[in-house]
């Protein structure tokens, strides 16, 4: 598996898309810092970008990479190799190279700006951690979709639809259900709703450290307990890990049974 991981990783590192991705974040980081001049505000703006763009790029890259390397995958399948190690190796190769572009692209300008001397370092590391989680989650979801669909166009379509659903439509439905059931106690429902969507989950996680804390307690005891203590942080990270593990398990099972 490690060999395939290494191969995929270096293959992607050589491809120009990784550099474009890296350059994009580098530029974003530099522009934000020098227009804003305020590290903690830059972190907030960055959050908006990360929770939308990272999933999108993870999805598109994942699907693209799977379909592009399909012939090579079929060649590998002819070798005496375990199927799970082939697909997991490819998946990890994509996810790790994307995460590296993200961390380096954003990290370099912030370090140059003086991150280590700033109090925003925890907010910033949280931002990067959730960014990495999102990359892993959406790459895995994209691999799942690609594995289930032989048709490239269909696969791409589903992948984009999944991103659209989780990034925007889900929140719309969520909000509508909250308004519809406003006569009932909603605090637990809304927390569960947040947990079920990795994008919402990461957003909440970052907001916990940023401005939701000022609104803390406004909405009642359950929220106060969840947002006010490290309990919320632990649960959120646990859920994010589950969001990584479940799709990865499905990759393993699906690839074992799939005909090529």
């Amino acid at each position: 598996m490690l060999k395939i991981l290494k191969y995929s990783f270096f293959d992607l590192m050589r491809s120009s898309w990784s550099y474009v991705y890296f350059a994009f974040y580098l530029l974003l980081g530099i522009v934000l810092l020098f227009l804003n001049n305020d590290l903690s505000k830059a972190v907030i703006t960055l959050m908006n970008v990360i929770i939308v763009l990272v999933p999108l790029i993870g999805t598109v890259f994942g699907v693209m990479y799977y379909y592009n390397s399909k012939e090579f995958t079929e060649l590998l399948l002819a070798q005496p190799l375990k199927r799970s190690s082939i697909f997991l190796g490819q998946y990890l190769g994509v996810a790790i190279s994307l995460s590296m572009s993200l961390i380096l692209g954003l990290g370099l300008p912030f370090i140059a700006y003086g991150l280590f001397k700033s109090s925003a370092i925890w907010d910033f590391s949280l931002l990067l951690i959730t960014g990495v989680f999102l990359t892993f989650i959406f790459c895995a979801l994209a691999f799942n979709i690609a594995l289930s669909n032989e048709n490239k166009i269909k696969g791409f379509g589903y992948a984009i639809l999944m991103w659209l659903f989780l990034a925007i439509i889900y929140d719309g439905l969520f909000l509508m259900s909250l308004i519809l059931f406003e006569d009932y106690p909603l605090d637990k429902l809304s927390l569960v709703g947040t947990m079920l969507n990795p994008i919402d989950l990461s957003r909440t996680l970052i907001l916990l450290k940023l401005d939701i804390s000022a609104l803390l307690g406004y909405t009642g005891a359950v929220f106060k307990q969840f947002f006010g203590t490290s309990f919320g942080l632990i649960i959120s990270f646990l859920m994010l890990s589950i969001w990584v593990i479940l799709p990865v398990l499905r990759i393993v099972f699906k690839s074992r049974k799939k005909d090529f």
Partner: peptide, 11 residues
């Protein structure tokens, strides 16, 4: 008030 969990979401 519970819809506060959607603060800063794209939607």
């Amino acid at each position: 008030p519970e819809s506060i969990v959607l603060l800063r979401s794209l939607f």
